[in-house]
Nucleic acid binder design. Structure first.
Length: 628
RNA sequence: GCCGGUGUAGCUCAGUGGUAGAGCACACGACUCAUAAUCGUGCUGUCCGGAGUUCGACUCUCCGCACCGGCACCA
């Protein structure tokens, strides 16, 4: 028996899951389910990454201990996967004992390989960021570009992994295994990264506390990214070297979004090479989802409202749309109207209606599924197409072409609709033609059983509904023609995809999806804190662009008693000349900063969501008036 | 400013060095078993622009334009 081990990344719990996570996981789910119906022994891993400075910080902001924070966030992921009907075999948490023990074993092996060494690491360090600020981000003042606080010069000992040593072997492996990194665009990208040379990487942090300590030096915590990669092995039970681990490693597919391929396709294989373990077969990257053409961004309010669409059209319609509409590997634009069109055209009209008309005819004329006694025109054609559809589907799935896979299945669905049409089966109820009628209905229903098997990896609930309506007691996963039993009692046929009328649906769609209530308790500040702000009314007296910066404008603001130069990131929304003469609110006691070599003494307040709009007093007021 | 992607029918997108494709939408016809469903026929294209390579380019190369994304930058 073949085995098939597929993984999603373990998702970072410093934020809630969004449609992108859902896409990765659904796609992986399809592969897992597909291999199961082929009879492969499947292991499907997903989970969460709970360690690292970021989680620590977010937890702190929320007033929680890191573990308590993780315990709160993790269920949000598991609940979403349940709602999306994800069939993972394990959900791994990196705070679990299993993972920690496995990671330590892995780290020990890595250390024993001799490719881990200790070396001083020095540079300018920002405490709040918990990171060294790279050379290119440094300014003359040596302040953190994010926090604007003075940086510390730190020299600390860190552990490094000798990644550079594996450059040639990686290159050779990628060349010898053309499908190792998929799709090709990503492969080329990483080949060019390899061409430009690999540097050894730091794998530990001594300044971070929330994580797993190095077994060979407990003062140091393993860098969260390095630790996360090991999950693909620890989830199998690597630390106990058990049967599951030996059965499933190496993984067949590491599925992920395109932004994290470097870690998976270079660093991870190199680490495995170091400890002489087999490499995963394929690193597979899909594109990003966009919404109406724009990248998803929580801060800009560009989000995909999965809940609403799932509620309106059902989970399977949502899964179908994602899989059918997006060409794998490329970015795909999510549009609710397209989902609507797909739902009605493909699911309701083509498939749902086909099932319904066949069941209707059968119920009206027969008592149970008739035997196929009377072959005739078109029968063989349908039968053959059923088989070729199975073969084509396999090719498409192996190439991650889920859109083509579904298109192939739907070509067959349309063929069956045509079969019913061509044979005019509804005219054959007379006694002398009734055996032929029964045969055609048997074939049609058997075709639908085929379809239900083939779509089951994509839209599992629908597949089950179809088989249930056909009268099968247990889900049949075998795509061999003629398995449909005779005499089964079919159901009367409730539409599995009732048409959704767009006009009706518009009514209860007042776009008042409540703007997420930010966890209010956690972000409260005291009145004293607020009083620290010195806000004043100023008048913009000049505005000009700053060279080399798309978003910045240099403003001169008259505060009555003094004039200030302020840099504002509003160039994309305001032309300089329209600003002149405008009254604005200025934070005057903000510490000065140098941005793009221009000094800024203060900050202009503006509403910044999807667009940026300056906050101005409702009527003109004297310059320098305090705002509170 | 740097890096990358995209530009093909009204819409969403496939695609190939040799006379342009699918689905949806649209029009007309057939049918009436079925969820205003199904089936058939038809329709539209300077394949972003320019130059080059070639017997021949939508397909390869170069230059440009537009849009998108990432990074820089957002006090």
């Amino acid at each position: 028996m073949n085995t098939f081990y597929i993984t999603t990344p373990i998702y970072y719990v410093n934020g809630e899951p969004h449609a992108g996570h859902a896409y990765t996981t659904i796609v992986s789910d399809v592969l897992a389910r597909y291999h199961r119906i082929k009879g492969d022994q499947v292991f499907f891993l997903t989970g969460v990454d709970e360690h690292g400075a970021n989680v620590h910080k977010v937890a702190e902001n929320a007033g929680l201990a890191p573990q308590a924070y993780c315990d709160k966030m993790t269920p949000i992921f598991t609940e979403l996967w349940e709602r999306l009907n994800i069939s993972h075999d394990i959900f791994l948490r990196t705070t679990s004992d299993m993972h920690k023990r496995g990671a330590k074993k892995f780290l020990t092996a890595l250390y024993d390989s001799g490719d881990v060494y200790k070396a001083p690491y020095e540079g300018y360090y920002c405490r709040p960021c918990e990171r060294f600020v790279p050379e290119k981000e440094l300014t003359d003042e040596k302040i953190c570009p994010i926090h604007k606080l003075p940086l510390e010069w730190i020299e600390e000992e860190n552990y490094f992994f000798r990644l550079s040593k594996y450059q040639d072997r990686l290159l050779a492996h990628i060349h010898e295994n053309p499908l190792f990194i998929y799709p090709e665009s990503r492969r080329n990208e990483l080949l060019s990264v390899l061409d430009s040379g690999l540097e050894d990487i730091s794998i530990s942090r001594s300044s971070v506390s929330w994580g797993i300590s190095l077994p060979f030096d407990p003062e140091h915590i393993v860098y969260v990214w390095i630790e996360a990669l090991m999950n693909y092995m620890t989830a199998l039970g690597y630390e106990t070297d058990n049967e599951r681990y030996h059965t499933f490693w190496p993984a067949n597919v590491h599925m992920m979004a395109k932004d994290i391929t470097r870690f998976h396709a270079l660093i991870w294989p190199a680490m495995l090479m170091a400890i002489d373990l087999p490499l995963p077969k394929q690193i597979v990257a899909h594109g990003w989802l966009t919404k109406d053409g724009e990248a998803l961004s929580k801060t800009r309010g560009i989000v995909i409202d999965m809940d609403t669409d799932i509620e309106t059209y059902g989970l399977d319609a949502f899964r179908y749309y994602l899989l059918r509409e997006f060409s794998f590997g490329n970015d795909g634009d999510y549009r609710p109207t397209r989902l609507h069109e797909r739902y009605n055209a493909d699911l309701a009209n083509d498939l749902g209606n086909l099932l319904n008309r066949v069941l209707g005819l059968l119920n009206k004329n027969f008592d149970g599924i008739p035997a196929p006694t009377t072959p005739g025109e078109f029968d063989d054609e349908v039968k053959e197409m059923a088989q070729t559809t199975v073969d084509k589907l396999d090719e498409h799935i192996n190439a991650f072409a889920f859109d083509s896979a579904l298109e192939t299945i739907w070509e067959f669905v349309r063929r069956v609709n045509r079969y019913v049409q061509q044979t005019e089966v509804w005219t054959l109820a007379k006694p002398e033609t009734k055996p032929r009628m029964g045969t055609i209905l048997y074939n049609s229903l058997e075709a639908l059983r085929f379809v239900s098997v083939l779509i089951s990896p994509f839209i599992p609930d629908t597949a089950e509904k179809i088989q249930k309506q056909i009268g099968l007691a247990e889900f049949d996963t075998v795509a061999d023609w003629g398995r449909l039993p005779v005499d089964l009692k079919v159901s009367k046929g409730e539409p599995i995809f009732p048409r959704v009328d767009l006009k009706k649906e518009k009514a209860p769609q007042p776009k008042a999806s409540k703007p997420k209530q930010k966890s209010k308790e956690t972000n409260l500040i005291s009145f004293a804190d607020f009083q620290k702000l010195d806000l004043r009314i100023g008048n913009i007296i000049s505005a000009e662009p700053i060279e080399g910066a798309d978003r910045l404008l240099k403003l001169q603001v008259d505060l009555g008693t003094e004039k200030r130069q302020v840099v504002a990131g509003i160039a994309e929304h305001y032309k300089p000349d329209v600003l002149i003469g405008k009254q604005v609110i200025v934070v005057v006691n903000l510490e000065p900063a140098t941005i793009r070599n221009v000094e800024s003494h203060g900050m202009i307040l503006a509403a910044s969501g999807d667009s940026v709009v300056l906050a101005t007093p409702e009527t003109e007021v004297p310059l320098g008036t305090q705002v509170k």
